[in-house]
């Protein structure tokens, strides 16, 4: 179920668009925030409020890789391992995350604190290796620097 504030937010979002379907993407982001991921319940909640059939909402949601399609940790680490990052040691960083936090690519740390998503170039080749933690961007990564960064995310 959506919280009352989330319901209000959704209604406001809806008003910004000419029709309910157009509001689906931000509505799904909101649902993801509320439910942690795009669970069947999340789709049903969005569908119930927007009046967009749930099968259609799910179709739209699953098109986008950047939604969470399964339960994930509280913080999402998106680490690039494409060419530039790889050359500058991204693979070592992957190992580091595994050893230090028990974090496998595509997986979630046992304490539910982090999930790791491997990215294919996030447009920071000049300052590789690079990653996103939630919506924050970090570059020129080293093991030590990653550790420092992740300390801030509980």
């Amino acid at each position: 179920m959506f919280s009352e504030t989330a319901k209000k937010e959704l209604e406001e979002i809806r008003l910004k668009y000419p029709n309910a379907r157009a509001a689906l993407l931000p509505a799904l982001y909101l649902a993801q925030r509320e439910f942690g991921w795009l669970s069947p319940e999340a789709y049903e909640a969005v569908s119930g409020i927007l009046g967009v059939p749930k099968a259609i909402a799910r179709g739209v949601g699953t098109f986008y890789a950047m939604y969470k399609h399964k339960p994930m940790g509280r913080n999402i680490v998106q680490l690039c391992t494409n060419v530039s990052c790889m050359i500058l040691g991204a693979e070592r960083l992957v190992d580091f995350l595994k050893n230090k936090y028990g974090l496998e690519p595509g997986g979630t740390s046992p304490d539910g604190r982090f999930s790791l998503v491997i990215m294919e170039c996030i447009g920071a080749c000049g300052t590789a290796p690079a990653m996103l933690v939630n919506d924050d961007f970090f570059e020129n990564l080293t093991e030590k620097y990653i550790e420092e960064i992740l300390e801030k995310y509980k």
């Binding site: 059939p53 799910r58 699953t62």
Partner: peptide
């Protein structure tokens, strides 16, 4: 009925 959707891409 809108019971079907295209899933994934």
């Amino acid at each position: 009925a809108a019971a079907l959707g295209v899933i994934s891409r």
